[in-house]
């Protein structure tokens, strides 16, 4: 068996009659198949090393620190600052108690924890916990509570696109079409993530369908998706058009 020929086939360099003859041998000659299979396996084995080498080379490329890493570092700083502030306040409370102050300390403490120390608290781990709670509520289909949770995040951080997206989806589930549509429209205009933009575009169409919009306006909304074969909702849009 000729390795050079195997290599050409493996590298997809065989053409015309040579390719036909090779594939004919693969169909008819069992020994040929076994020999080629062994050749291909050895090449695949070597390719795994090549892939590993490529991966290692990519690892050597220095990459910028992501915004998320910055955020992570910032969160640590904020968390430590918050802990330090809590300790100072605790010491102050203890001092006031010893002084026999007439303040209702329990109430004061409650208020202290109810309110954010400052607007920067939005990016602490506590905020992430609220996010987790919001998504969990959504998962359990408690859309009203999930909506409130997402709204709470937005109250602290009005530019949080993830929370806005969550809120819009809750409102969609709660059939609050106008509000949901307005939020999806905002997300479509301002979200930097393309997947979210496209999702918002699609959600606006679903809302229009719920609101029994006219076929012409639906067609207008679907048009960009239909014209764009790489759009994530291209196939769904096609199916939808067929059913209209």
């Amino acid at each position: 068996m000729d390795d050079a020929l195997f290599e050409k086939y493996y590298e997809r360099e065989l053409e015309g009659e040579a390719l036909k003859a090779f594939e004919e041998s693969l169909r008819l000659d069992e020994n040929f198949v076994i020999a080629y299979k062994e050749y291909a396996q050895s090449r695949q084995a070597l390719q795994s090393l090549q892939m590993k080498a490529t991966e290692n080379r990519l690892k050597d490329i220095s990459l910028p620190i992501t915004n998320h890493e910055h955020q992570h570092k910032r969160r640590s700083i904020i968390r430590n600052t918050a802990i330090a502030a809590s300790l100072i306040l605790f010491i102050c409370f203890s001092y006031l108690i010893n002084k026999g102050s007439s303040l209702d300390y329990q109430r004061l403490a409650d208020n202290f924890y109810e309110k954010p120390i400052n607007p920067a608290i939005k990016s602490t781990d506590a905020a992430e916990n609220i996010f987790t709670t919001a998504y969990t509520l959504f998962d359990s289909k408690d859309y009203s509570k999930a909506k409130e949770a997402f709204r709470n995040i937005l109250n602290r951080d009005p530019e949080n696109m993830d929370a806005l997206e969550g809120l819009a989806h809750c409102q969609y589930q709660l059939e609050e079409w106008e509000e949901a549509s307005r939020h999806f429209n905002n997300l479509y205009k301002h979200h930097k993530n393309i997947a979210s933009k496209e999702n918002s575009e699609w959600m606006m169409i679903l809302i229009a369908l719920q609101k029994k919009a006219e076929k012409s306006s639906l067609m207008e909304m679907l048009d960009p998706m239909l014209n764009e074969s790489q759009h994530s909702y291209h196939f769904k849009a096609k199916k939808l058009i067929e059913s209209l």
Partner: peptide, 27 residues
Amino acid sequence: KIISEEDMQKYDKAFSEIAFYDYQDKA
């Protein structure tokens, strides 16, 4: 994350097209 269910479906679809090649152990 539920709001990304559509995305997840999209990735599932993409995944179904992936001839996944686990080269780490093989290497």
